[in-house]
Design a protein around this nucleic acid. Structure first.
Lengths: 112, 112
DNA sequence: AGCAAATATTATAATATTTATATCTTTATG
DNA sequence: CATAAAGATATAAATATTATAATATTTGCT
């Protein structure tokens, strides 16, 4: 079971397992962004942003391009956005079923 | 940026960030499985399997059903498999581009 | 060369996760 | 009822991740 493939995949998902990194990837949907751009959106210090970008870089999720002193990041494989979309669908489904459950419960409470 | 939604999503991905949990989910593709079934595949002790299942349960990724003393698990939302498929596509793309890079490098080396 | 801006790296303390081990529950059966 | 089988939970030690602060590198400008 300890196949390296599963370890590799787990690493991939772990790279998505941080709010800041998710925000970064969402930001990159609309094209490349500089570290400074991201820093403004994330409201984090420069070092933290750089660190999170390093994680995404090491997991090969983003590529960077240097222009003068500024570095622009972009996602490497657009499929990644597809993945985030499917995840979003799962969250929505989950919210809906939770909502339905609550509604059901409140109805049952009403009829007591 | 510290929106709870992104925290929630990150938690979701973190739940996928462990090889054993990925194997469990892959196993559940073909329908529900008992803890014991999973234990055999994972080659882990009962407690570890139960622990990993607890993580998936808490993140609402799986549901369980008890029949006698055995507990059967299944994934809650089939969309999850879709997500794993997209992830697989990303890995494949990545392998292909790595391969192409290596090929290119070896060609350049040949022509020296 | 000297300095400032943009980004990266490193060190480290605080937290969180994993793993291993022991201890319960629950259910079935003699 | 005693015991075994299947799972779950509690907990402590080992690891890994995150946040924060300090330091380093690269580039452009004067």
């Amino acid at each position: 079971m300890q196949q390296p493939l599963h370890r590799f995949k787990a690493d991939f998902f772990r790279a998505l397992g941080h709010p800041a990194r998710l925000v970064i990837l969402e930001q990159l949907r609309s094209g490349e962004k500089s570290v400074h751009d991201l820093q403004l959106v994330l409201e984090l210090d420069q070092s933290s942003v750089s660190q999170q970008l390093a994680v995404l870089r090491h997991k090969q999720m983003v590529d960077s391009r240097k222009d003068g002193t500024t570095v622009y990041y972009r996602v490497r494989d657009p499929c990644l956005f597809e993945l985030l979309d499917v995840a979003q669908t799962i969250f929505n489904n989950h919210l809906i079923s939770t909502q339905e459950l609550l509604q059901q419960l409140s109805q049952e409470t009403d009829s007591l």
